[in-house]
Design a protein around this nucleic acid. Sequence first.
DNA 1: GCTGTTATGCGTAGACCATACGCAGAACTA
DNA 2: TAGTTCTGCGTATGGTCTACGCATAACAGC
Lengths: 253, 253
Amino acid sequence: MAAKTNDSGPVLPPAIESAWGLRERPPKGPRPGMSVPAIVDAAVRVADADGLAAVSMSRVAKELGAATMALYRYVGSKDELLMLMVDSGYGPSPGPPDPQDDWRTGLTRWAWAEHEVLRRRSWLLHVPISGPPITPQQLGWMEDGLRCLDGTALGEGEKMSVLLLITGYVRNEATLTSQIAEGSRAAGVEPAEMMPAYGRLVARLIDPTRFPALHRVLNAGVLSQDDHPDDEFVFGLDRILDGVEALVHRRAA
Amino acid sequence: MAAKTNDSGPVLPPAIESAWGLRERPPKGPRPGMSVPAIVDAAVRVADADGLAAVSMSRVAKELGAATMALYRYVGSKDELLMLMVDSGYGPSPGPPDPQDDWRTGLTRWAWAEHEVLRRRSWLLHVPISGPPITPQQLGWMEDGLRCLDGTALGEGEKMSVLLLITGYVRNEATLTSQIAEGSRAAGVEPAEMMPAYGRLVARLIDPTRFPALHRVLNAGVLSQDDHPDDEFVFGLDRILDGVEALVHRRAA
DNA sequence: GCTGTTATGCGTAGACCATACGCAGAACTA
DNA sequence: TAGTTCTGCGTATGGTCTACGCATAACAGC
């Protein structure tokens, strides 16, 4: 088995190396007619317009007026293109926290920034991620998140865990809301009618003696009202930050 | 646009209705040679053995000694089959909490049960879920989770939010660990060497002045040691439950 | 300026995939 | 026995990714 490593560590796909600016063009051969950034931009444009499912190599090539196979001179595989799309799709990190903000304010802003990106580009949630982040902007987001916790007494590992916790939460929450939106579009139902319809469906399916707690929830009308979706987001985020706060206090003591 | 609803609410795909036992076989015509459960079992067997990517209609049909198109008499589409695979793959819910346990013990057990399932069947994480749960066992898990919170003063909506928070966390955590496992297999690296290799890679890429906080984390050796993976899981779960606990106390006051 | 080397653009083709459609035959009802 | 309805599934369509190889363009060294 060919281990994908060399002396200086694991080997990066060429296109990722060029994203870090580690690759100069060889002086020989014809001048390239495209560039990796141009391809990634085109792919992002397709995803923005028609969703991730519409992103095929031939569609992206058409967007650029090029032939399908021409792309493979720039990206090693579709998966590689997807990785670059994620990096570009997230965009630049929200920047370091305001020095006068406490960690909680900073992380809240950080979480909202990701929330906002995922709301605008829900296709990011559909990209099957295949490992920890190694692209420049992704690591930029991480850096900015870590800085929010600079003033706390948490260990470095704990800081990382907290970030993972929060970004995971944001992604998860965004996944759920985007599913509702996509589901309502697919079923031809008003988005606001989606959860009530779901509630009625479940109410019709379940036997109240077998599912008493669930039945009680439905009876309370939990799914019937369409409250502001951001409320749900804020609720979970506050729970998590409460939990982190407890830890921060314990470490500071 | 054809709205997928009728008088009694949204229409369920036929195969899902049969999972709820709402469908009797019409008396005419030849007797079916297969059954939906047999097909789902075969598909789960394929996924267990070779991963979700190996689950194609033809592969499942081969597993059953049937022709590809024969499956479409039982399931409406591959997506429908995937939904049933998830239901079957999760298996029966962990059961209601022990009456003498407090809510926190109960939810911890509930979270571990899902954690365990996802560790054994990581392909469940790769199934693109397309909406809120409507299959019997999925709702069974929900019911059992809700019951853990029965004794608390939380509102019904809050209980639901707490469950979503926890299941989201468990899925997210499982996704990360399974990515490490799959990544190490793909790169031909020992699983224990995966995170250290990642750490070295990032250390080589980043400029310490542009990424000071990240650099500090790496210097602290956060990624170098391979601590018990369950520790990471417990850490996040405890943070979340701490946050929930704060809310429970506030509501009880 | 010529030649060898190397990269590029991309056409062809192969190996998959999901699934629409339609037909032959089985099992029931009347 | 005739009619109806459902099953199994063969064929075919249109899509996917990508391995391979060829013609050509641009440079390096002589």
